[in-house]
């Protein structure tokens, strides 16, 4: 058993002081050299990592914002494009309708024209045949009534022409009135 020393003022240091001083110095040296620096390094490293994460976050936020803006711009572009195409289609439709209407109009007027000329030709034909038949018929009738045979061809045609001329003159005189 370790003997207890009875006569010792505990406020006065003894040889233990030097042992304790050396022990503390050794512990301090080891802590200061091997333990504290890595802790400091780790703390700064973690701070750096956190700071980096913050900047990364900001960067990502900015990226997302710009992407959203781009997206909005593209949407707006697409809307514009769609509106433009619709407008174009409407214009094209109107143009087609106008063209078709014009064509139809032209066709109609062509048909009308054709009908007019047909009519004119028919009339001309009718006039020609009339002139041929009405002459002989009229002279026949006139000959019978007058008793004078109008065999003479020359005279006959002269009479007919005069009659027709009279008729035409009458017609043209009446025309403005109509």
């Amino acid at each position: 058993m370790i003997p207890l020393e009875k006569t010792n003022n505990f406020l006065v240091p003894n040889g233990t002081f030097w042992v304790e001083l050396i022990a503390f110095a050794i512990m301090f040296y080891i802590l200061a050299k091997y333990i504290v620096p890595p802790i400091n390094r780790a703390m700064t490293a973690r701070q750096d990592a956190i700071r980096k994460q913050f900047t990364d976050l900001d960067q990502a936020k900015a990226d997302a914002q710009s992407a959203e803006e781009e997206f909005r711009a593209q949407i707006a572009d697409a809307r514009h494009e769609a509106a433009r195409i619709r407008e174009e289609a409407r214009e094209q439709g109107a143009a087609i309708i106008a063209e078709m209407r014009e064509q139809a109009q032209a066709e109609a007027s062509r048909i009308v024209e054709h009908a007019h000329s047909q009519l004119e030709a028919d009339r001309q034909q009718a006039v020609t045949s009339l002139r041929a038949e009405v002459g002989s018929l009229a002279t026949d009738l006139a000959g019978r009534i007058v008793g004078e045979a109008l065999e003479d061809q020359a005279r006959q045609s002269r009479v007919v022409d005069r009659f027709l001329a009279d008729l035409e003159a009458q017609e043209s005189a009446q025309e403005p009135v109509k």
């Binding site: 370790i2 003997p3 207890l4 020393e5 009875k6 010792n8 003022n9 505990f10 003894n14 040889g15 233990t16 030097w18 042992v19 304790e20 022990a23």
Partner: peptide, 20 residues
């Protein structure tokens, strides 16, 4: 026994062995 320590003599110095 306040302040009493078992001691040893190291190199002529009295050392409180329990503290050490």
């Amino acid at each position: 026994t306040p302040g009493e320590h078992p001691t040893r003599e190291w190199f002529g110095l009295t050392v409180n062995i329990d503290t050490v």
